[in-house]
Amino acid sequence: MRELAVEVPGAPPLAGTLTLPDSPGPVPAVVLTSGSGPLDRDSNHRRARFDVARQLAAALAAGGLASLRYDKRGVGASPGDWRAAGFTDNVDDLGRALDALAARPEVDPARLLLAGHSEGALLSAALAARGAPVRGVVLLSTSATPGDELLRWQARELGPTLPAPVRLLLRLLRTDLEAKVATQHARVRATTTDVARLGGVRVNARWTREFLDHDPRTDLAGVRVPVLALTGSKDVQAPPRDLEVVAATVRSPVQTHLVPDLTHTLRRQPGQASLRGYRAELRRPVDPEVLDTVVTWCRRACHADAPAENPL
């Protein structure tokens, strides 16, 4: 495996890494895109090293596939401001990364794939629905629920997992987390700028407005290439049941995988699912089953006809 620093042209340019296998080219390749917020090309945040894209890149290279991953606007070595970028801007950036990958001499432009985690899965589905020239799409920890409904669902799921003192305080204050989330949505919808200050904090207002109104089912219905969708049974950020929606909505061959005990970090967690377990999970590598499933599917998508359906 070898890695090259690359730049995705455009405004703003995006800094990235091209990972190549130890095999003669041109080779099939995958664009990797990460979740929401200020994540770098490796899917890392300064407070949480998810490391999903970097580990996927290494696994793909071992399987003979190249990959391109990139820093978001205003993150890592990319200029700009991630807070000012909307959801549609992020789709456009993914499209630019795909074009940049297709132009590389080491890569076979007829054998390209998209693979995204969390928001990256939504971006990948959106770009594929635009008719991007790819052989398939990998959706990891994806949602098929409209954004405003998804965030309310997250509040319902996360409430019972909060520490007991926090739950007690919320009861004493008569605070309903789901109602509080809905109130925040209304405040964001009332903004008109890309970045707004709410509660003394600068937030990515345009992205949030676009995300709240985004219905992934529209994009899924427009995808015309094979899809792999994988979610963990203990994901409290993307509903595991949405795998059924993906399978029912995409009109091309679909493989769905519900991985036992897997969380949104793509690691396994014993006991009750909660965000509190993330710190310990992130000290471990991405689950081997996830990596093996993705690499095997990508190889088949690039070297054979469309994968057969594998219903949930």
Rank of each mutant, 00 (worst) to 15 (best):
M1F: 06
M1N: 01
A5H: 10
V6Y: 00
V8Y: 01
P9W: 00
P12M: 06
P12T: 05
T17E: 12
L20R: 08
D22G: 10
D22M: 07
V31Y: 04
G37L: 12
P38S: 05
L39T: 09
R41I: 05
D42F: 02
H45D: 09
R47A: 13
A53W: 00
G63H: 08
Y70C: 03
R73W: 03
P79K: 04
D81A: 11
F87I: 07
G95K: 11
A100R: 08
A110Q: 13
G120N: 04
L127C: 04
R135N: 06
G136Q: 02
V137L: 01
T142W: 01
S143V: 12
E149V: 13
A155R: 03
R156F: 07
R156W: 07
L158M: 12
T161Y: 03
L162E: 02
V166G: 02
V166H: 09
R167M: 09
R167G: 07
L177N: 06
A179S: 14
A179T: 12
A179G: 11
K180V: 00
V181C: 10
T183M: 09
T192L: 04
T192M: 01
R197F: 00
R197C: 09
G199R: 14
N204E: 13
T208S: 14
D213S: 15
P216N: 08
P216A: 07
D219E: 12
V223T: 10
G232C: 11
S233D: 12
K234F: 09
A238S: 15
D242A: 02
V245A: 14
V245P: 00
V245Q: 03
V246L: 08
Q255F: 03
H257R: 15
L262D: 03
T265R: 03
T265M: 07
T265S: 10
L266K: 08
A273K: 01
G277I: 04
G277D: 03
R279Y: 00
A280K: 10
E281G: 01
E281N: 12
V290M: 10
V290S: 00
L291F: 08
T293P: 05
R299V: 14
D305R: 13
A306W: 09
P307H: 03
A308N: 02
